[in-house]
Design a protein around this nucleic acid. Sequence first.
DNA 1: CCGTGACTGAAATTCAAGTTTCAAATGTTC
DNA 2: GAACATTTGAAACTTGAATTTCAGTCACGG
Lengths: 303, 303
Amino acid sequence: MTGNNRTSIPPGNRRPVQGKGNPGTRSLQARIQEHYAVLPGSERKVADLILDFPGEVAAYSATELAGLAGASKAAVTRLIRRLDYASFEEARRAARDAQTWGSPVYLLSKDADRGAFDTRVQKHIEQDMRNITRTFDGIEEDTLEKIVDAIIGARRVWLFGYRNSHYLAGYLRWQLIQVRGDVHLLPAPGETLAEYMTELRSDDLLVVLGFRRRIPDVKRAMDIAGDAGVPVLFITDPTARQGSGATWTVRCEVRGEDLFDRYSAPMSFLHFLSVAVVARAGAAGRRRLALIEDRHEDLDAFG
Amino acid sequence: MTGNNRTSIPPGNRRPVQGKGNPGTRSLQARIQEHYAVLPGSERKVADLILDFPGEVAAYSATELAGLAGASKAAVTRLIRRLDYASFEEARRAARDAQTWGSPVYLLSKDADRGAFDTRVQKHIEQDMRNITRTFDGIEEDTLEKIVDAIIGARRVWLFGYRNSHYLAGYLRWQLIQVRGDVHLLPAPGETLAEYMTELRSDDLLVVLGFRRRIPDVKRAMDIAGDAGVPVLFITDPTARQGSGATWTVRCEVRGEDLFDRYSAPMSFLHFLSVAVVARAGAAGRRRLALIEDRHEDLDAFG
DNA sequence: CCGTGACTGAAATTCAAGTTTCAAATGTTC
DNA sequence: GAACATTTGAAACTTGAATTTCAGTCACGG
């Protein structure tokens, strides 16, 4: 951050940005541009900084801005007063609210558009993006590597889930069986669980997809597996209390503003995990993929 | 800093998800997720707020966060301490600096492996974001409304898909049956398709999930349905040629740089569609939801 | 050159945000 | 139900950021 006069607006040539007339509704940037031509040096340094990074002002204190601009705290305060803010805090808040689309002006205009399809789509996409990003924020590389090792090295992999989680478990199974065998989806249609529970061994791996709302069988199965010394990967959402005794717990964000939880983030994570498993499977995995391809041809599966 | 001993974390009961060991490098979100399960109510409210708006924390004061979360300033401070920050200011600054990839702490904490993993994650997230955005670029409001109407108005809805598509079809069915009955997933385990093909009527709806690689039965089923005058919604990927005679075709982006296709975007679309169906279902849908809840209680489904 | 006004930042001061304390309420265990 | 632990937020307290003051410097006009 140079703090020097990087913004080369010629003072005499500049036309002031047209104000809306009510200072309370004009943005910080607009106000700076309106006064820019008459700003003394020190204040101009601060103004330049703000103009260079308009989206970030609210996250900095006046003291920090002063330092970054190579000016004094007093200069910051003076600039703020010149721009018709009562205090730095008022300016910071206004900048933040404008940035987060929470400003009163924005909300007024948004109300009119609220029913618009595009807004709905945008809001929806943002929620998915947020959930995906937040999910991966919580993924640690070491843990993922261990999970991948466990998937590759397990004698058998049991995928387990109910309701929505069942379809996610099924999807994950379908990825894993591309590169390894002995991957089973539970519960199987028309069957009861106990038979499988007797089979679990400590060289197996139980992968539990357990997004809310969870039925009690989920915890029971994990407890039984834990008692049998079976490693358990619990893929869940942040509302799950602890890891229910699981060896590893991965929390995927599913929350949104709708009645239903949203599963783009879990799907995203499962894909990421699957790709890591494929990579780890190496030559053995590639052989299996080739063999599957052969069998597809034998069975004329794709016409 | 004597701390508040009464809010100390119970030592034996907590199982950390993953310990990186160096608190300074873990994000605010990661820290919250690590402690989430044991957060008492008030702190959890604050944590939820932060998790909901991770990019914006730095622009808010602790007092503002407390108000927004419906908690006290003390709860904010306690949460911050629990997360191993010396002060709110430290947390705020860390959150802010984490937003900018050039922050010194972030750069210092990066080693070669960590950088590669983060790059992998970032690349992965970008691909999902791109696919989701592109998918919705292709969704027309009119078409979606017609699809929603068809789902609500059909005598029966048949969800149909193989391989990965089968699990997506299963997921969609699970959303739809929350607000309407007579929703069926095909193929059913251990059955053949022809029996169902004889049943299709023009007041039914066939929803075909047909992502690549498609087996010939997909096209055959759609042809048969078309011949029977059954409306067909074909949810597929851009490689599908035309709509195979379907009434409506929705193309979701699944392509990425990995061996496997990625399904966050289809999942995102299915969620969006499900939410629209719920909204359209109105009072009848709500009655069904309430009835399902009653039956859950009768069956003690959630313990 | 002198007088005046503007600019400037360090230092003094103010103030409110953040932290800690405390006692009441709530939760847990026996 | 009793004993103990935990949670909670209002109030008291602390702290440091923001504001104001002050004196030195600079610029400009007569």
